[in-house]
Design a binder for these strands. Structure first.
Lengths: 206, 206
DNA sequence: CCTACCGATCGGTAGG
DNA sequence: CCTACCGATCGGTAGG
């Protein structure tokens, strides 16, 4: 009566649950509530997903896949750190805000899942997301484009800077302002820039 | 039998619950489990705290108080952005890692509380924590020490950079490495430095 | 502060 | 045999 409602139920569950888990967290949302939102029975949920944890994991994996595809295309960009980082960020900002926010959901809620689930997702997360940024940072250090700081730390610093754009809750919900993103990349690069073409005074540490 | 166990039960509940909420999140931890950990009855918990939300709020407020006291002392520091930011960060890093992590707990879980509780905490959070950093940033912009960017955005960028040091879960648990902290402040300041002149603000190593 | 409970809801599963 | 569910209920636990 209300609608044909037959738009791939599997996907409709994923979409609705994504939104609800984002608002309420893993333990703050029940399978019953998801079922009501999707207008299937709770048993219907369990036909499509083994249990709550596997449903949640499917959400995280789907979000990571979206990001991965976007980042893959952007990775062809060659040149220095700046064009590469900017291209990566632009690609990330082109995926929907809600799928971006799934990465934040992952970092907040992963600890509440079983050890096996955590391990399996964390592996993919590093391979497909963090690793891509860290690789650019490592290359830039090798080229002397940025200071010889710990690449892992530098990556986390950079991610921390753009973190608000993965959320829409801490900051303004408008979201992906390209100018702001570019400025933040600029701040990062200016902050960590190496001795190559500027002053050598910042280089050494012991 | 087991222990005298009479070390201010109110505080023991706070301490134990802080640790457990940190591991499990607001909805991932039951009052029953807290009671068992503290070795009081569940009803005993309700003698000391009105309900689960008020217990959780007490934890957040206590953590904020610790930070507030430390930051108040550091706020006497005068001079440019750099000494002021460094003093503030050093003060923050002197409070225990677990109390620092309470701020992260707040940012993760606050959304799961009632609107009234959220509002009451967020007010204090801005007044006593974020506001202190934003004030320094605003002063620095007014003095031309750093670029004329949105102070709110700059504050969130800075907080994002030091975010890992509020956790102990995303990064190494060792926690507060002063050298890393100083370097990050240096990266931020170098990244946002203004047109005034690059005098002492570039020197981050001693 | 405890024992003894409540209305309701939790994640998950039965047979059809 | 299949896909795609349903109404009802399981044993336990939630906050109060």
């Amino acid at each position: 009566m209300t609608a044909p409602a037959t738009g791939d139920i599997h996907q409709r569950i994923l979409d609705q649950a994504t939104q609800l888990f984002m608002e309420r967290g893993y333990h703050g949302l029940s399978m019953r509530e998801i079922a009501e939102a999707v207008q299937v029975s709770k048993a219907g949920l369990y036909y499509h997903f083994q249990d709550k944890e596997q449903l949640f994991l499917a959400i995280l994996n789907y979000g990571l896949d979206q990001l991965n595809q976007a980042m893959q295309a952007a990775e062809q960009t060659s040149g220095g750190v700046e064009p590469r980082l900017q291209a990566l960020l632009r690609a990330i900002m082109r995926v929907s805000a809600s799928q971006r926010a799934v990465m934040r959901l992952a970092s907040h809620e992963l600890a509440h899942l079983s050890a096996a689930t955590q391990a399996s997702f964390r592996q993919r997360y590093y391979d497909q997301f963090i690793g891509r940024i860290e690789r650019i940072v490592r290359d830039a250090i090798a080229q002397g484009e940025i200071k010889a700081i710990d690449p892992h730390l530098a990556t986390w610093v950079f991610l921390g800077m753009v973190y608000p754009f993965f959320s829409g809750s801490d900051m303004r919900d408008g979201g992906a302002d390209p100018a702001q993103i570019e400025m933040i990349v600029g701040i990062f690069l200016n902050g960590v820039k190496g001795s190559k073409k500027s002053t050598a005074s910042l280089q050494m540490e012991s």
